[in-house]
């Protein structure tokens, strides 16, 4: 899409979308009100602003994130559940000049792929992991996830998550921050603050571009379908409920690169 586009009826009707988005696959496949679209919009904007579209290799996981397999006009591989981190690690190790992004949900990152997230972070892999936290396994029909909040009802905890039996929700960025070196970038953003989320994703990608270290951003995201909420309650949950437990902000910011 050119920078200065002639204004026509079509362009007027088209919502503004990042240049790195693939127009042929839009409108996207996510449910109405799903947070993935917003997180991927922030990511698309970050890719555009950094001018790295040609170098990006994007990997998506299983879960709703797989619906992003043709989302960007970037080379993309959709992996198995939890395994996007090692696939992207392999690509980065084989081609360090690529900007490699692993995109996944909370189940992929904190449950089935937790060992990969932990070890990629420990090894300080020069990749960027972006994790959408919507507090449930959405694609499989709304089961309890590592991030399901205390008392929150899902298909596999229909009476609410009992933290005595099932433990506390995983605090991913806090965990990653604890095990990474100073040159890692770790943050938690939210779809409720797109400007901040975009900035975080840019910093995360910049950390990889600079070859400094691992970067990880969790993004709080909505799932009205499985939460069984209307628009207002969905927004309230994302904006008010989730941040009570999942604190939004930067947990680890490397010192700016010299020179």
């Amino acid at each position: 899409m050119s920078e200065c586009m002639e204004v026509t009826a079509t362009t007027l009707l088209e919502p503004k979308m990042p240049r790195s988005w693939r127009r042929a696959s839009k409108p996207h496949k996510f449910c109405p009100g799903c947070g993935h679209g917003d997180v991927l919009k922030a990511l698309g904007t970050a890719i555009d602003d950094l001018g790295i579209q040609d170098r990006v290799v994007f990997g998506c996981d299983i879960g709703c994130s797989l619906l992003a397999w043709d989302f960007f006009e970037c080379d993309t591989v959709q992996a198995h559940h939890g395994r996007t981190t090692p696939v992207i690690t392999g690509i980065k190790r084989a081609r360090p000049d690529r900007i490699c992004i692993a995109y996944m949900g909370d189940g992929g990152g904190y449950a089935i792929g937790a060992q990969h997230l932990v070890n990629a972070a420990t090894r300080n892999e020069r990749i960027t992991v972006i994790l959408a936290n919507n507090t449930n396994y959405a694609m499989t029909g709304g089961q309890m996830a590592p991030t399901t909040l205390p008392g929150q009802k899902t298909e596999t905890c229909p009476y609410g998550r009992d933290i005595e039996a099932m433990g506390n929700p995983t605090l991913g960025p806090e965990m990653v921050a604890a095990i990474t070196k100073e040159n890692a970038y770790v943050a938690r953003g939210t779809m409720a603050n797109m400007r901040q989320l975009t900035t975080m994703l840019k910093k995360a990608l910049q950390n990889q571009i600079d070859g400094r270290g691992f970067s990880f951003v969790e993004a709080l995201a909505s799932c009205p379908t499985n939460w069984r909420m209307n628009a207002k309650s969905t927004w309230d949950f994302v904006e008010k409920e989730m941040p009570n437990y999942f604190k939004v902000g930067e947990l680890k910011v490397p010192a700016p690169k010299e020179g």
């Binding site: 591989v77 992996a79 198995h80 395994r83 090692p86 696939v87 992207i88 690690t89 392999g90 690509i91 980065k92 190790r93 084989a94």
Partner: peptide, 8 residues
């Protein structure tokens, strides 16, 4: 999986 990444 990381070997697959390398092959890809």
């Amino acid at each position: 999986f990381s070997t697959l990444g390398g092959v890809l």
